[in-house]
Nucleic acid binder design. Structure first.
Lengths: 251, 251
DNA sequence: ATATCAAATTGATTTGCATCAACCTGGACG
DNA sequence: CGTCCAGGTTGATGCAAATCAATTTGATAT
């Protein structure tokens, strides 16, 4: 092993090994032929490990990279001039954070870890260069960004048309399916975020979130103690999310 | 003029002339060097003229193209299983419609004209191919999609944190600045959409929109008669949008 | 002109959730 | 072991906006 190699491995900006990553079927490698994976590995940087509550990047600071969650979880939020916070998303392993910032020279939001979290960093200039060479990767980026727009539209719809119960049921189901895709239990999981974040994300007061949780619990739909949640009746939850529209087209 | 040329010009899929288009400083050409403009013209199709209320594309139908508004205006909306509509955006000349659909094989929303409207059509496969060749164009697409995500986050914030007055003031100011960028009066314009669409977009009841309009009118902030709007006191409007956060950080 | 129908306005009442306030719970730490 | 404090729960009250209901206005056709 040369000194240079040893040095490179010692720096914090280690190359990540997408080849061996367990998330390669969720993350960017998903879009890439095996023989092109090297070129992705060439640009990716292994980020350091963050403790709970640390900032990955801050709103208004220079936009340099997108980040893929490797383990742990992240919340993104916008801070208004008045100091109000609006949580815009929660991100789980394999998901890409920072796409909304592609519109400018600075980050459009702040990304904060919800627990001990590790990430992979994709410097945006190199990523753009690479997507120019790999049509499949470019296509995947478009897909991801399109999906992000849709998610955001879904959130807007939830906020403008649905009751507190419907919003919370939707969030629980969304988390459930995302845990499932990551080969974790879809009915028995630990919420990565605090009630406060849930409330903020869903446009509710903390008290309301709390009340809905206990109401669901009393109805036997879920069992919750702190952040530990068990979905006892998924169908009932799905029913809740559609309650509004069911009334709209009854008879 | 050869017969072939004459024929080509007679078909509905005429090539658009981006070179001569007055929107070239707003639309995709914005991102392209003059000498590359030809390659954009090669893939763009001049769409037909649509009357008010016609559909440009429908949710769940095969996703083929993005559309740039040439004249007129468009609203996009999602229809839920329950038949509920949620307006997700309004689009003015030079703006690109359909970016949210890049995530899948079908359109994620329905695009409907709000008035007599003409569009340019960009077949998505050709557009992707071209963005692979023109880094500036690719960069611009990323920017546009990132902006779309941000817009949607802003909307979510508006819906979850702001009062009816604040939402409507925001919309009026957004329209105002967009008219201004198009060299139309920022204080004197005609709303392209009905009260109903405004209400739906902002998560309000039509009655509330109506009431806020008259309240603003009585306060001398605007003058409105049907769709004709005059902004009499822009500063007051801006103040309304910040009222919430001002209270949050007073003292 | 007049009829017709959708869009918009205005008023009265209800309601879901925010807000205010008090109290619990559990983990960190001296 | 008790203290502290943030995070969470529960209860009482108020309010902004939805809903229900009735007109009015405006556009299009007859």
């Amino acid at each position: 092993m040369t000194q240079a190699t040893r040095l490179r491995q010692a720096t914090s900006a280690l190359k990540a090994s997408c080849h061996q990553c367990s998330l390669s079927n969720l993350c960017l490698p998903l879009a890439i032929q095996d023989n092109d994976l090297d070129s992705l590995e060439d640009i990716v940087q292994q980020g350091r490990i963050y403790n709970r509550g640390e900032h990955i990047f801050d709103q208004s600071s220079p936009f340099r990279s997108c980040f893929a969650v490797k383990s742990g979880s992240i919340k993104t939020s916008i801070i208004t001039e008045g100091g109000e916070e609006q949580v815009t998303g929660f991100f789980m392993p394999g998901e890409l954070v920072g796409l909304d910032s592609m519109s400018g020279e600075t980050y459009a939001c702040t990304a904060k870890t919800l627990e001990r979290t590790s990430v992979c960093e994709f410097p945006i200039d190199k990523l753009e260069e690479l997507t120019g060479k790999l049509p499949d990767l470019q296509h995947h980026m478009y897909r991801l960004m399109g999906q992000e727009i849709q998610n955001s539209h879904q959130l807007a719809m939830l906020l403008s048309k649905n009751t507190a119960e419907e919003r919370i049921a939707s969030l629980l189901l969304s988390l459930s399916s995302r845990f499932q895709r990551r080969r974790m239990s879809p009915t028995n999981f630990s919420l990565p975020m605090a009630r406060n974040d849930i409330a903020n994300f869903l446009g509710l007061a903390v008290e309301t979130v709390s009340r809905v949780f206990t109401r669901f619990q009393n109805q036997g739909i879920i069992r919750a103690r702190g952040r530990e949640v068990e979905l006892l009746d998924v169908e009932a939850l799905q029913l809740v999310t559609r309650e509004f529209s069911r009334q709209g087209c009854s008879q």
